[in-house]
Simulated assay, not measured.
Amino acid sequence: MKRTPLYQAHLDSKGKMVDFGGWEMPLNYGSQLEEHHQVRNDAGMFDVSHMSVVDFSGAEAKAFLRILIANDVDKLQTQGKALYSCMLNEAGGVVDDLIVYYEDDENYRMVINAGTTHKDMAWINAQAQGFAVVVTLMSDLAMIAVQGPNAREKVFAAMGGVEQVAGALKPFNAASLGALFIARTGYTGEDGFEIMLPASSAEFTWKMLLEAGVKPCGLGARDTLRLEAGMSLYGSEMSESVSPLEAALNWTVDLSDESRGFVGREALEKLTPEKTIVGLVLEGKGVIRDHNQVLTNLGEGEVTSGTFSPTMGKAIALASVPKGSEGLCEIEMRGKRVSAKIVKPPFVRNGKILV
Rank of each mutant, 00 (worst) to 15 (best):
247 A>P: 08
254 D>A: 12
233 L>M: 09
253 V>R: 07
185 T>F: 04
257 D>M: 15
215 K>A: 10
248 A>K: 04
168 A>R: 01
259 S>I: 08
183 A>M: 10
230 G>E: 10
238 M>V: 09
190 E>Y: 08
207 K>D: 13
224 T>C: 12
211 E>V: 02
203 E>D: 11
183 A>C: 10
214 V>G: 01
225 L>K: 03
246 E>V: 08
251 W>I: 07
246 E>I: 10
242 V>K: 13
201 S>A: 13
174 A>E: 03
235 G>Y: 14
250 N>D: 15
247 A>M: 06
223 D>F: 12
183 A>E: 05
249 L>T: 03
254 D>Q: 09
190 E>P: 00
179 A>F: 00
244 P>V: 11
184 R>A: 08
169 L>E: 00
240 E>A: 08
187 Y>C: 11
204 F>Q: 13
183 A>P: 06
248 A>C: 12
206 W>I: 00
250 N>W: 05
193 F>M: 06
219 L>Y: 08
248 A>S: 15
229 A>T: 06
215 K>G: 01
216 P>H: 06
254 D>T: 13
195 I>E: 06
247 A>T: 08
194 E>M: 09
202 A>F: 15
220 G>E: 08
228 E>I: 05
259 S>T: 14
204 F>S: 15
217 C>W: 01
215 K>S: 07
213 G>F: 14
241 S>M: 11
241 S>I: 15
201 S>W: 09
183 A>K: 07
195 I>K: 02
172 F>L: 15
199 A>M: 11
186 G>N: 05
183 A>G: 09
249 L>C: 07
175 A>P: 15
230 G>N: 06
237 E>F: 03
260 R>I: 14
261 G>R: 05
194 E>C: 10
227 L>C: 03
182 I>Y: 00
179 A>H: 07
235 G>W: 13
186 G>Y: 14
173 N>E: 12
250 N>I: 10
214 V>P: 00
197 L>N: 07
207 K>N: 13
186 G>S: 05
260 R>H: 07
214 V>H: 00
250 N>Y: 04
178 G>H: 04
203 E>Q: 15
216 P>F: 02
228 E>R: 02
223 D>S: 09
256 S>V: 11
244 P>L: 15
203 E>M: 14
247 A>K: 01
231 M>D: 14
201 S>Q: 11
261 G>F: 03
188 T>V: 04
191 D>G: 13
214 V>N: 00
261 G>Q: 11
229 A>D: 06
203 E>T: 14
168 A>G: 04
208 M>A: 15
185 T>H: 04
200 S>A: 14
184 R>M: 09
224 T>Y: 11
222 R>A: 13
177 L>Y: 05
221 A>K: 06
190 E>V: 03
255 L>A: 12
243 S>Q: 13
222 R>C: 06
243 S>Y: 04
248 A>I: 01
220 G>H: 03
209 L>M: 09
175 A>S: 12
220 G>V: 02
205 T>Q: 04
232 S>R: 03
